[in-house]
Write a protein that binds this DNA or RNA. Structure first.
Length: 551
RNA sequence: UGGGGCGUCGCCAAGCUGGUCUAAGGCACCGGAUUUUGAUUCCGGCAUUCCUAGGUUCGAAUCCUAGCGCCCCAGCCA
């Protein structure tokens, strides 16, 4: 960790409170190796917020030579589905190359959890409450008033045990009873006022089927899951901070009873990711899919990992992002530009360059013979000769970008306009000699001695450099341009959709794109794109200081 | 209102066993150099100030006290 080396800042992992905590635990010998876990509930697709957690947990494990489990927190059969399990495994595999694809399930520990419940009952630490949900709520008290004990709170361990067994055996209706911890109804921390441990719920579980009719609550199940897996550092988000006293209470009781061994897992909370212009509420995400605002969970505009993948965002970019934003307990909003910058940075290194004219305008080179053609040579990457070259056919009629021509140029515009010279990138320098408003054709003459790669190439200096595609050789393709789904900077509640989040264009491409089997490509002067289905999707634009200046 | 957290540049975020802090780094922004992508790269600028007010100290972003602000908790959800 060379946090102080500014040259390596971007790759260097910087200090944060969880790393320090782990280092202290390792140094003191409290744990000999670390073990973390990523515990999603399979009730939706993974999103950008989960990426932070996944990368934190798997990243820390890798960094300190430990391991990390993917574990499904499947304790509520009413909301969980196999489809989500599958998509989650898929996304984690994509994001984390070292992940072996093996998943663990809380539901595999149901027997042990139940055994722990019986122990808590017999040791007087839990009881069966038969109040209605409404009474329980009323008797919990509020922020100012302590709760009052349930009339069932003093049932004997024997009575509690037989009731608990009857609950498990299905002798009681849903909601008739609930198992609660016996802690204190007067605790200033409401989470400690005898929290519910088990509820009766006749629902078919996606893995255990109808074997159970009682299911453990998250509060109760999670600490046990961690302990069973010998997790050392259980990382979760800030809203679980108030739950930590119960987490520790439970684990210590079970350890006292010999059901668990030390060292016990430690819960550590950090701030969840909030990204500007991105909405990460599962409820709203589901709504976007159901309302068909987007084309499914993996729509490239969706902030899901499945969507990010189709959009062309890369795992490496995510890794840089996670490292860059750090980890803290500060409730913060990360600017979307940080995310985009991480992706650009990675894509710049790996993407081959190609020409694509997105908004075509015809250019005719009057002094170039009809029927003649040449092959221009162009590197696949300006700084990586090892990535090779390709050739681009050149002819008299070309497609150029509409925005690369202005009949009446605005100040500082140095692209094509009548009388101005510009280089056709990797080709010739041309001079614009006219524009026909009726046919919409720009005419120019080329300077034969200025061909790229020849000795005369630099005989004429020009400021502008534009890309082009030969009309006769052009390939046609659909290009999808995505923009943010939400207009608001911090879309927390209801959604405020951007009507222009998807634009489809008919573009002209240089022929070498036809058989290209590329993960990511840069269309020069436009941005990074990914080949998706029968066209290309724009992942992210290039930085554009001209656009910023014109704004 | 009781409890739990958090407050360092427009946005993140180091720093927190007090001095090397007239406070790192990134994003954004503003210059300028190089450039056959108005891209990349490079160089420079960007908090005498660390929520506020007191205090301790030779010395405080770092310690103490009192305020102020924001977030979370009253599901048989996670």
């Amino acid at each position: 960790m060379n946090a102080k080396n500014p040259k390596n800042q971007d790759v260097a992992s910087h200090s944060h409170f969880i790393r320090r905590r782990i280092e202290a635990d390792l140094a003191s010998g409290r744990v000999k190796a670390i073990k973390t876990r990523f515990p999603p509930e399979p009730n939706g697709y993974l999103h950008l917020g989960h990426a932070k957690s996944i990368l934190l947990n798997f990243g820390l494990a890798k960094e300190y030579g430990g391991t990390c489990n993917l574990r499904f927190d499947d304790t509520n059969p009413e909301r969980e589905e196999q489809e989500y399990v599958d998509s989650i495994i898929e996304s984690v595999k994509w994001l984390v190359p070292e992940f072996d694809g093996k998943a663990l399930y809380a539901s595999d520990y149901f027997d042990f959890m139940y055994q722990c419940a019986e122990y808590l009952v017999t040791s007087g630490n839990a009881y069966v409450d038969s109040q209605s949900a409404e009474d329980m709520k009323r008797n919990r008290g509020d922020f100012t008033r302590p709760g009052v004990d349930s009339p069932y709170r003093s049932r004997s361990p024997e009575e509690n045990l037989s009731l608990l067994r009857e609950m498990r055996e299905g002798k009681h209706a849903d909601g008739a009873h609930v198992l609660r911890a016996r802690i204190s109804m007067a605790s200033p921390n409401i989470n400690m006022r005898d929290p519910a441990l088990y509820r009766i719920k006749r629902a078919t579980h996606h893995r255990t089927g109808d074997r159970w009719c009682i299911y453990p609550m998250y509060t109760y199940a999670h600490p046990i899951e961690d302990a069973v897996e010998k997790i050392t550092h259980s990382l979760c988000t800030l809203e679980f901070e108030d739950q930590r006293p119960f987490y520790d209470w439970l684990l210590n009781k079970l350890a006292d009873g010999g059901l668990l061994q030390h060292p016990l897992p430690q819960q550590i909370e950090f701030a969840r990711l909030q990204l500007t212009h991105v909405m990460l509420s599962k409820r709203l995400l589901i709504k976007l899919v159901e309302d068909k605002v987007v084309d499914g969970w993996d729509d490239p505009r969706m902030p899901t990992l499945a969507g990010a993948r189709r959009r062309g965002y890369t795992p490496e970019g995510f890794r840089r992002f996670a490292e860059r934003i750090g980890v803290s307990k500060e409730n913060s909003w990360i600017d979307y530009s940080v995310f985009e910058d991480c992706m650009r940075q990675h894509l710049d290194e790996v993407a081959q360059r190609r020409f694509a004219v997105l908004d075509p305008l015809k250019l005719v080179i009057e002094n170039y013979p009809e029927g003649q053609e040449e092959l221009m040579e162009a590197p696949n990457h300006p700084k990586k000769p090892q990535m090779g070259k390709r050739t681009i056919p050149f002819s008299r009629e070309l497609w150029i970008e509409r925005e690369d021509f202005q009949e009446l140029p605005e100040p500082k515009y140095f692209r094509l306009y009548p009388g101005n010279k510009v280089r056709l990138r990797f080709g010739y320098v041309i001079e614009c000699i006219g524009y026909d408003k009726v046919t919409n054709i720009v005419s120019a003459k080329y300077l034969p001695e200025t061909k790229s790669g020849t000795s005369g190439a630099d005989s004429i200096q020009v400021k502008g450099n534009i890309h082009w595609v030969s009309v006769r050789h052009a390939r046609d393709a659909e290009i999808r341009i995505y923009d943010r789904l939400f207009k608001t900077e911090k879309p927390e509640g209801q959604y405020d959709l951007n009507a222009d989040s998807l634009k489809k264009l008919r573009a002209r491409l240089e022929p070498s794109l036809e058989n290209a089997d590329m993960q990511a490509v840069q269309f020069e002067r436009h941005g990074y794109f990914i080949s998706d289905r029968d066209g290309f999707s724009r992942t992210v634009t290039l930085r554009d200081s001209w656009a910023t200046a014109t704004r």
